[in-house]
Design a protein around this nucleic acid. Structure first.
Lengths: 227, 227
DNA sequence: TCTGGCGATTGACCGAAATCAAATCCACCG
DNA sequence: CGGTGGATTTGATTTCGGTCAATCGCCAGA
C-alpha cells in the first residue's frame, strides 16, 4: 500500500465531507474543487495577515489553523481554532477585499486553497454552491455567537466542562475523550491563558474529571453537567 | 403633512438601505419585500426565545433589539445590539430550525419580519437575493469575530474608545457624537456592566473625552487613538 | 415648586483570570 | 543513562471588572 496515496485519499475524504461541500452533488462538488489547490504548511507558517489582499479562502484537511487578531500593543487574541473539515475566510467572497484577521498553521497542516475570484464567478452559474457556502457561513456565525456568549458569562471551568461534554464519547454515566491537539491550543480556543486552563482542569478534578496528558476521563457526565 | 405616512416612508427607506437588500435592483428588492410583514413592538417585548421553532428572520427599521443567550443559572449575556438597518436570524435560512438565541425589543421598535420558508423558496429562482443575504451574513460574521477579539484583548476603556472613534463625526482634531441609545444599552453592546462603562468614561476623561448625557465630545482624536 | 422614580455615578469589596516566576514533567536525543 | 528543550503545572501577585449599596441628577407629573 502506498502511504502517500492513502494520505491523499484521506484528505480528499475530509474535503468531501467538509461543511462547505455539504449538500452538493458530485458534479457540484467537483466544480468547486476544480478551483482549489493544495497548500502544505509547516508549523507556525503564516497563511496571511490581517490587512493582506484577499485572494483565497481555505478548508483545513489536516492539522490545525488558528485565526487571530492583534491590537496596537502587539498583543494578540485567538478568534477560532480551525480543525479538519473547517473552512475559513469564505466570508470574503461577497463582503470584503482584505483579510480581517491573521491565520497561522499550528503544525504540519494540509489545506485546500480556493481562489475567491474564480469561485465568485462559479456561483453565478451554480447557485446551489452558494447555498452550501451560505450554510457554512451561518454555522460559523452561530458558533462564533455562542463563543462570545460563553466568554461573557461562563467561567473557565464551565467553558472547559462544556467543551468536554460536547466532545466526549459517552459510556453510561462515564465518558472519555482524547484531545486532538495540545492543551495550549485548547486554551487558545477557549480564550484562556494556558495556566488558566490547567487550573480549570484541577477545579474539575472534584467533579470527576481525570486528566493524563491528552487523555481525559469523566466519571459522571451528569455531575459535570451541573458545573 | 401626514405624520404616519412620513413615518412609514422613513421605515421603508431604512429597509431599502438595509444590508440585506444591498445590491439588489428594484424588482429583486420588491420580490424579497413581498415576503415581509411589519411587526410593531413595545419596549421589552420578546420576539422569540432560544429554542423556539424558527419561522421568521427580521430586519430592524426603528428602535433597537438585543440578542442574548442565558446559561443554566438564569444569567444572561448579550450577543449583539441590532440597530435600524440590521437584520438578525437570517442565519437560519439554510442552517437550523430553531432560534439559537433570544431577541428582545429595547423600546418601541418597528421590524420587518421575513417568512423564512418563503424566502428559502424565493432564493431558488432569485440567486442574487441569496448573494445579498450571503453578504449580510459575512458582515455579521466579521463583526462578531471582531467583537470576540476585542472582548479577549481590550480593556473596557479601550473598547469604549474604539466605539467612540468609529462612531464620531470628526472636526479637525476634535470630534463629537451623540449616543443613539441609553448608556446601559451601550454597556450591553460592549459586554460590560453599566458601572464598568461609567468607570471607563471617567478613565477617558484624562484623554479628552467629555460626557454630558448622551452627548460626547472628544478634544483630540489622536490622543484617544493611543488608548 | 415639590416629589417620585429611574438611569447613571461612585465607593467598597470581591472573585476570576492574567501575569510573572519557578518547579515539574516528559519525550527525545546523544 | 543523563541531558536538553518544550509543554505543563503550581504558586504568588496583580489587575480588571462584576456585584452590591448608597447617592446623585434629571425629568415628568402633581
Amino acid at each position: 500500500m502506498n502511504r502517500t496515496l492513502t494520505f491523499i485519499g484521506h484528505e480528499a475524504a475530509v474535503l468531501a465531507k467538509a461543511t462547505v461541500m455539504a449538500g452538493l452533488d458530485h458534479n457540484e462538488a467537483e466544480a468547486l474543487r476544480a478551483h482549489a489547490t493544495v497548500r502544505l504548511c509547516d508549523p507556525h507558517d503564516v497563511l496571511f495577515e490581517e490587512g493582506d489582499k484577499a485572494a483565497y479562502f481555505y478548508c483545513v484537511l489536516s492539522g490545525y489553523v488558528r485565526l487571530y487578531r492583534h491590537n496596537s500593543d502587539g498583543r494578540q487574541a485567538d478568534i477560532r481554532i480551525c480543525e479538519p473539515g473547517d473552512s475559513f475566510a469564505e466570508c470574503l467572497i461577497h463582503a470584503d477585499e482584505t483579510y480581517r484577521y491573521g491565520a497561522q498553521a499550528m503544525d504540519h497542516a494540509v489545506l485546500a486553497r480556493f481562489h475567491i475570484a474564480e469561485v465568485r464567478l462559479l456561483l453565478e452559474e451554480r447557485p446551489r454552491i452558494g447555498k452550501a457556502i451560505m450554510r457554512s457561513l451561518s454555522l460559523h456565525l452561530i458558533s462564533t455567537m455562542e463563543c462570545l456568549a460563553s466568554d461573557r458569562m461562563q467561567t473557565a471551568p464551565q467553558r472547559v466542562a462544556h467543551y468536554l461534554l460536547t466532545h466526549c464519547a459517552e459510556n453510561g454515566a462515564a465518558a472519555s475523550l482524547r484531545l486532538p491537539f495540545p492543551k495550549n491550543l485548547l486554551a487558545r480556543k477557549l480564550g484562556l491563558a494556558p495556566e488558566a486552563l490547567s487550573r480549570a482542569f484541577s477545579t474539575l478534578k472534584t467533579k470527576g474529571v481525570t486528566v493524563r496528558g491528552r487523555a481525559i476521563a469523566i466519571s459522571d457526565v451528569n455531575l459535570l453537567r451541573q458545573v
